[in-house]
Design a protein around this nucleic acid. Structure first.
Length: 267
DNA sequence: GTCCATGTTCTTTA
DNA sequence: CTAAAGAACATGGA
């Protein structure tokens, strides 16, 4: 379920129901999804209060009393919900955390590409994450694109710009009329400017729409997003381009399916 | 059975 | 050495 808009919407929906709550009881599933491996979630989380929740890249950071933090990454199929304690437990639930008001925070993730990462008192992990799109200006983005890779691949690299994934890269490149195969280092400042404003506009719209629900992505209340209805190219191969009616093409770049309009986005 | 899937990391190659 | 390409991870749906 996870690109920046989906993760941000999960945080937004989580805030009113968990900030200030205390984690009264912790239980975990049969699979270890922690990093470092074998980490004792019960020992570190039980009895702590959630002071803040925020997003960094595609990570959801939970700040506890005592200044400890951990983050959850949703991977490809993860969901976080807050529900009544007696609600049926979905398969592949890796963490159940009782809150002090008869509700329960649950993290499930069938494919287990996501996980629970302990941060301790640090703010960032050793991982090198690029800037948040909303903190970026075109003159800062341009040098970050000085690579021989094609623009599609560069934008998926979280150390270049953080938070974009396959859907929003394709949608942003379409909006900026940039071909996904254009070498990143050949982008002009004009193109970078157009690209970045497209990225910000699309991310904002997607957040407002509650994200894109392709499979089973839901927010903390279990609601689906609606931005999939606004996709112009993603998963629209063969359908008419909304601008020029040319059929949308699907190719594979960087092992990821890539959708674009061959007429609007020229090399 | 086959192919595909909103992601990241480790390994291999150039 | 670095950068880029490829494989791997695990599950489920069409």
């Amino acid at each position: 379920m996870p690109e920046l808009p989906e993760v941000q919407h999960v945080v937004n929906s989580l805030l009113p129901v968990i900030v200030g709550r205390r984690l009264t009881a912790i239980s975990t599933g049969p699979h270890d999804v922690t990093e470092p491996r074998g980490f004792d979630l019960r020992l570190r989380l039980e009895g702590r209060r959630i002071e803040r929740v925020y997003r960094r890249a595609k990570r959801i950071v939970f700040e506890l009393d005592g200044d400890d933090r951990f983050y959850i990454h949703l991977g490809m199929s993860g969901t976080i919900i807050v529900c009544p304690r007696q609600s049926p437990v979905r398969p592949h639930t890796h963490l159940r955390a009782d809150l002090d008001n008869q509700t329960e925070l649950r993290f499930s993730d069938p494919r287990r590409f996501g996980g629970i990462f302990w941060m301790g008192r640090s703010f960032e992990t050793e991982n090198d994450l690029g800037p948040e799109p909303f903190d970026l200006c075109a003159s800062d983005l341009l040098p970050r694109l000085a690579t021989a890779r094609v623009i599609k691949t560069a934008l998926l690299d979280q150390s270049v710009i953080a938070g974009l994934g396959n859907i929003y890269v394709d949608e942003s490149l379409f909006a900026a009329r940039i071909h996904p195969r254009q070498p990143a280092r050949t982008l002009t400042l004009t193109q970078a400017t157009s690209l970045l404003s497209s990225v910000k506009r699309i991310l904002n719209r997607a957040i407002a729409a509650g994200g894109s629900s392709l499979r089973d992505y839901v927010d903390a209340a279990g609601n689906k997003g609606s931005f999939q209805n606004a996709h112009r190219v993603y998963d629209r191969a063969g359908k008419a381009c909304s601008r020029c009616r040319t059929p949308i093409e699907r190719i594979v770049l960087h092992q990821r399916s890539t959708h674009f309009c061959p007429a609007c986005q020229c090399l």
